[in-house]
Structures are given as structure tokens and as C-alpha cells.
């Protein structure tokens, strides 16, 4: 129960223990703690950044979608307009074509009528001539009575 040289021995042991702890135990353990702390902080920061990026991307996607919608509706409007134009154009063309056809048909009809008239006139003249021949019983010289015949035929026309 007295103070003696044990004191010195204990002090040496203590000094050795403290030295060893300071040199080989505290630094690696403490560093690993700090490193892990940093890792966790980095991870959390990265997660937060990722979340922000997702938000940004969503916003961007929304923008793109909106733009696309606008574009598509513009295209649809344009197409409709174009279609209307085409319809109008074709209507016009058809109308013109129809009119042209009608005109041509009319002309042809007119021509045919004329031809028919001419033919009929000729035939009537011939008939009248032959009838007159028969009625008169005498020969009517075609050359002599040319003006009469043509007068009659003109009257028929």
C-alpha cells in the first residue's frame, strides 16, 4: 500500500500505450470514420442532384411535348388548308372542263344540225324536183330551172 517503483513501471507502460494508440490505432480508425462520413455526405448530395436533374428533365420533356403538340396542330391546320385549296382547285378545274365539254358538245350538235339541215334540204329539193317532174310530166331541165329549184330549197331552209 505504499508508493514505490511500481509507479515508474506503470508510467512507462502508460506512455507506451498512449504512444501506440496515437501512432497506430487512432489515425486509421478515425480516418475511416471521416471517410465514411464524407462518402455518405457525397452520396446524399449525389442523390439530391439526381432528384434535381429528374425535375429538370421532366420540365424539359414537358416543353418538348408542348412544342411538338403545337407543331403537329400547325401541320394539321396547314394540311387542312391545303386540302381545301386542292378541293377548290379541282372544283374549278372540273367546272371549267365541264363548261368546255358543254361548249364543244353544243358546237358539235350545231354542226350536226347544220349537216342534217343541209342533207334534208338537198333531199327535199330533190324530192320537190322529182315531184314537179312527175306533176308536170315534162322534163324540167335542171340547168334551165336552176333558179327556181334553189329558190324552193332556200324557202325550205
Amino acid at each position: 500500500m505504499s508508493i514505490n517503483a511500481t509507479l515508474i513501471g506503470q508510467m512507462i507502460t502508460f506512455a507506451l500505450l498512449v504512444w501506440f494508440t496515437m501512432k497506430y490505432i487512432w489515425p486509421p480508425l478515425f480516418d475511416s470514420l471521416e471517410e465514411r462520413k464524407k462518402k455518405i455526405a457525397d452520396g446524399l448530395a449525389a442523390a439530391e442532384r439526381g432528384q434535381e436533374e429528374i425535375l429538370l428533365a421532366e420540365k424539359r420533356a414537358k416543353g418538348v411535348l408542348k412544342e411538338a403538340k403545337e407543331q403537329s396542330s400547325e401541320i394539321v391546320i396547314m394540311a387542312q388548308k391545303r386540302a381545301n385549296e386542292i378541293v377548290e382547285e379541282s372544283k374549278d378545274t372540273a367546272k371549267k372542263e365541264g363548261e368546255r365539254l358543254i361548249v364543244a358538245a353544243k358546237a358539235q350538235i350545231e354542226q350536226e344540225i347544220q349537216q342534217a339541215k343541209e342533207g334534208l334540204r338537198q333531199e327535199v329539193a330533190d324530192l320537190a324536183l322529182s315531184a314537179a317532174e312527175q306533176i308536170l310530166g315534162a322534163e324540167i331541165d335542171k340547168a334551165k330551172h336552176q333558179d327556181i329549184v334553189s329558190k324552193v330549197s332556200n324557202q325550205l331552209g
Binding site: 507506451l16 500505450l17 494508440t21 497506430y24 490505432i25 486509421p28 480508425l29 480516418d31 475511416s32 465514411r36
Partner: peptide
């Protein structure tokens, strides 16, 4: 003291940040 050193030394040698 040796026990203390041994335990902590073992832990320190295997110390990882993982």
C-alpha cells in the same frame, strides 16, 4: 493494456470506409 491494443489494432487494420 495488451488486450486493449490487440483489439483496437485488429479493428484498425481491418478499418474500411465501407
Amino acid at each position: 493494456g495488451g488486450l486493449f491494443i490487440w483489439f483496437f489494432k485488429t479493428a484498425a487494420e481491418k478499418a474500411t470506409a465501407g
